[in-house]
Design a protein around this nucleic acid. Structure first.
Lengths: 249, 249
DNA sequence: TAGTGGTCTAGACCACAGC
DNA sequence: CTGTGGTCTAGACCACTAG
């Protein structure tokens, strides 16, 4: 349950120091704003070098549990409840984990030049792209409708990629060295063609996920996924740092 | 855009080493699986002590950009696209930031004993709670309907708290020392009483957010928020670590 | 078994901010 | 000015694991 997992040796000294301070904070004994002992004091308390206590306290600072200031010392941070870890659904894995047969169907595939893509409430002018519409199905039942632009400036190799049997997201993960992304999650009603393709009656609630992915400063892809609301949840876990729970997810 | 932000001195040596390695990876020059120079080599390359290169590479490992193994050395990790940072909406701040007037209305408030709370597809038996229904409004227009259990075992002080003018979430943030939470996000149709309270026609799409919060191993609160789909997005940012973008959000 | 990372020490200098 | 954290060094021993 708890995102502890200090690395390395099961209980290295810095991990123990860190856990000890963490315990003081989590128990409420050291409330937000409370000043924790300076590194020199911790050295003496634990009978170790300063590098070791520094490693412990620095980790807590990265985690967001404490705030460090020169001269002012280190104080317990205010709980903020600002961020959580959202698990990005790997659709295929998600489906197969439930014992269902995963299927992918390419609906359409075209080149678009200098298209203007609508994202949230803003329009973005981006270079030419390959535009793909496809379906992800579970046991033959449509689950996710995906509409995706992949920009040729960032990924010229996509021009010749075969996307008839492999979903574009999978292809990209294997071919784009590293990514960064922003997601926008909203609720919509299934309408028109999309409703039909998902096998839904018009008006049925769906999760709508817009994902824009960068590599460096260049936009790699923009994906819009319409997910059957009755079949899929997104799950996010939170801890004070907005960290630590990825591995458990 | 990039979640760099090395701490401390604008460009400390370990930050520069880290940035250099990161650049090799992001450029694709060092593809996933590529082995990066061992610490001893990096020491010589940069003419510094091992602690310094260790700090750089360890940070990259925490970030998830590289994977470290004894004997096998350090290799560039596979991009995974598994997690993102979800910004938890602070409803009041969100509303006021748009220049609208925030308003909070308590709809009902009761004690429940040994209630069984439905979460996702599971039922949970938890101790007695204070159960609150309330609305968050923007310029008098209902935006979020919140139904929340707060468990007396974990937060006995809630028994006497005044929730007529302060939302329960705000009260909790100020009174519960530290928290951990799980969120479940789905899309639903507004129905019945909820639709009426949100001023929506039945069937309108809504985001449905279930949040369960712990303190240690004890459940503090379970909140269910129904959010007008036409008025609200959730935003999540991703980087390889599932980290680094909180501050920018 | 040898090479690698994980950890730790006992010093040091510096920048910064509160007093 | 003084205490604090940020950084760095030049060593050291150990644990793990791939070859």
């Amino acid at each position: 349950m708890h995102g502890k997992a200090p690395l390395g040796r099961p209980d290295s000294l810095h991990a123990r120091i860190r856990a000890d301070i963490e315990a003081h904070i989590l128990s409420g004994e050291w409330p937000p704003g409370h000043r924790i002992p300076p590194e020199t004091t911790l050295m003496q308390t634990w009978g170790c070098s300063r590098m070791t206590v520094n490693k412990a306290v620095a980790a807590l600072a990265v985690e967001g549990l404490v705030a460090r200031n020169r001269r002012a010392g280190t104080v317990v941070a205010q709980p903020r409840m600002r961020a959580a870890i959202l698990r990005i659904p790997d659709i295929r894995a998600e489906i197969e984990q439930r014992g269902l047969r995963y299927e992918y169907k390419l609906l359409s595939d075209e080149r678009r030049s200098a298209c203007c893509v609508h994202l949230g409430t803003e329009g973005h002018h981006l270079g030419s792209s390959r535009f793909v519409r496809c379906l992800h199905l579970a046991d033959g039942r449509p689950l996710v409708l995906e509409e995706r632009h992949i920009f040729l400036d960032a990924v010229p190799e996509i021009e010749l990629a075969d996307l008839t049997s492999e979903p574009p997201g999978t292809w990209l993960l294997g071919h784009v060295p590293w990514t960064e992304a922003e997601h926008r999650i909203s609720a919509v009603s299934a309408e028109g063609v999309a409703a039909k393709e998902l096998g839904l009656t018009s008006g049925a609630p769906c999760l709508y996920l817009e994902r824009r992915t960068w590599r460096g400063t260049e936009t790699v892809t923009i994906a819009k996924q319409t997910i059957r609301g009755d079949a899929f949840d997104l799950v996010a876990r939170f801890d004070p740092s907005g960290r630590a729970l990825i591995s458990g997810a």
